[in-house]
Design a protein around this nucleic acid. Structure first.
Lengths: 138, 138
DNA sequence: GTTCTTGCAAAATATTTGCAAGACG
DNA sequence: CGTCTTGCAAATATTTTGCAAGAAC
């Protein structure tokens, strides 16, 4: 994705467009699946681990990324929704974790089916990960 | 829960009923919510961390517990279903992770709504965790 | 100059394994 | 005995922070 567009996205989320942030955002935008901190670190040789960590923290705070918790820890993925704040995440979909190859797939055409929460629980986002065997591993 | 009953459960899952396993099973059965490795360690002072870890591994292999992946890592909870093997987990329900107090609640009356997976994906279990603010923290 | 950002190193956590001793049959 | 289980210590891996230097305004 071109830099101008990436800057625009950062701007829309009120994140100052530093060089590192643009690089990380580009990497996330290009990713075909949610990436772990370690994977991001490997793909971006110009930014230190702690830099990736802290930049992800900024992105989280500003609603640019969601976190997917699967059996391999946290993974990060760009939000595609258009909310610009800390509100309810309107772009959550199902993920699939392969127990054989430990890959997390993004099933982005499958929205998370909502549930009725008991009184008093207030949802901000949801994490739905199906575990099993992926097509490649069967 | 009485020891005889716990032994029976272990037996049904083809797990040899050692002292440690009975203690861990009792602790899990008494838990009101899924517990982390560290929490189990704390509650069971007679078993070492590695013992808890390895016993949980045995329980997982034999379908006695499920693992819930939330923002705080892995948590363990007794299965209530009655399958005795490695088959599809028939007792999965929604959990709620409070972003304020970091407690994971078990909404065991809310079953996980199923989704249609794309061709080739084979599900063994699913993990549905809603994040937000719990009744105590509002 | 003041504030925000970054890299490096290191601390703090969490997870997992080696190995020898013990329990069980 | 031979196999399975356990505790302790230690190795790994992962996540997070301190701090000083650099960039932005």
């Amino acid at each position: 994705m071109d830099t101008i567009r990436l800057q625009k996205i950062l701007h829309e989320h009120a994140v100052k467009p530093t060089a590192n942030r643009i690089v990380l955002l580009r990497t996330l935008a290009a990713a075909e699946r949610p990436l772990s901190l370690a994977e991001l670190e490997q793909r971006i040789l110009t930014i230190d681990k702690s830099g990736v960590f802290r930049t992800l923290a900024v992105f989280k705070e500003h609603g640019l990324v969601h976190v997917i918790d699967d059996a391999s820890g946290a993974r990060y993925e760009l939000c595609h929704g258009h909310h610009h704040g800390h509100a309810v995440d309107d772009d959550t979909h199902v993920h699939f974790f392969c127990e054989r190859c430990h890959t997390t797939f993004c099933l982005d055409h499958i929205p998370i089916p909502p549930v009725d929460l008991p009184e008093g629980y207030e949802m901000s986002t949801a994490n739905y990960v199906v575990k099993g065997i992926c097509p490649n591993c069967r």
